[in-house]
Simulated assay, not measured.
Amino acid sequence: PPPPTPSRYGLVPSYDLVNARIGVRLDKGRLDLSVWARNLFDKRYFQTLSVANTGLVSAILGDPRTLGATLRTKW
């Protein structure tokens, strides 16, 4: 089948995301603790947009702000 006709509803506008991580290493690098954030400012965005031949517009939303911590050790 031929590809669908380009539609302005299928265009994903550009966007910027800010990720951050800060951490500390202790005990000569044996212990590593960090806190991090993805999509720090909770930007709402589309990863994909598509338009079916029927006119149905579907999308995949981007991930919301995610916060976490990581603890690593070396033996």
Rank of each mutant, 00 (worst) to 15 (best):
P1W: 15
P1V: 12
P1Y: 14
P2Y: 08
P2Q: 11
P3S: 13
P3E: 14
P6R: 02
P6E: 03
P6L: 04
S7N: 08
S7C: 06
S7K: 00
R8G: 15
G10T: 02
G10Y: 01
L11R: 12
P13C: 07
P13Y: 04
S14E: 14
S14D: 12
S14F: 05
Y15V: 05
Y15H: 11
D16S: 15
D16G: 12
L17M: 06
L17E: 03
V18R: 03
V18H: 08
V18T: 14
A20Q: 00
A20V: 07
R21K: 13
G23Q: 03
V24F: 01
V24N: 03
L26A: 13
G29L: 04
R30Q: 15
R30L: 14
L31G: 02
L31S: 09
L31P: 02
L33A: 11
L33V: 12
L33D: 03
S34D: 05
S34N: 07
W36F: 15
A37S: 15
A37H: 03
N39L: 04
N39W: 03
L40K: 05
F41E: 08
F41Y: 09
D42S: 00
K43S: 09
R44S: 11
R44P: 03
R44Q: 11
Y45I: 06
F46C: 02
F46H: 13
Q47S: 11
T48A: 07
T48H: 12
T48P: 08
S50E: 10
V51E: 04
V51I: 02
A52Q: 12
N53F: 04
N53Q: 13
T54C: 07
G55D: 01
L56T: 14
L56V: 12
V57W: 03
S58E: 09
A59F: 13
A59W: 02
L61C: 08
L61G: 13
G62E: 01
D63H: 10
D63W: 06
P64L: 08
R65S: 06
R65G: 07
R65I: 11
T66R: 14
T66Y: 14
T66Q: 13
L67Q: 08
L67H: 02
G68A: 01
G68L: 05
G68W: 01
G68K: 05
T70D: 15
T70I: 11
L71Y: 12
T73K: 09
T73P: 00
W75T: 05
W75D: 02
W75H: 08
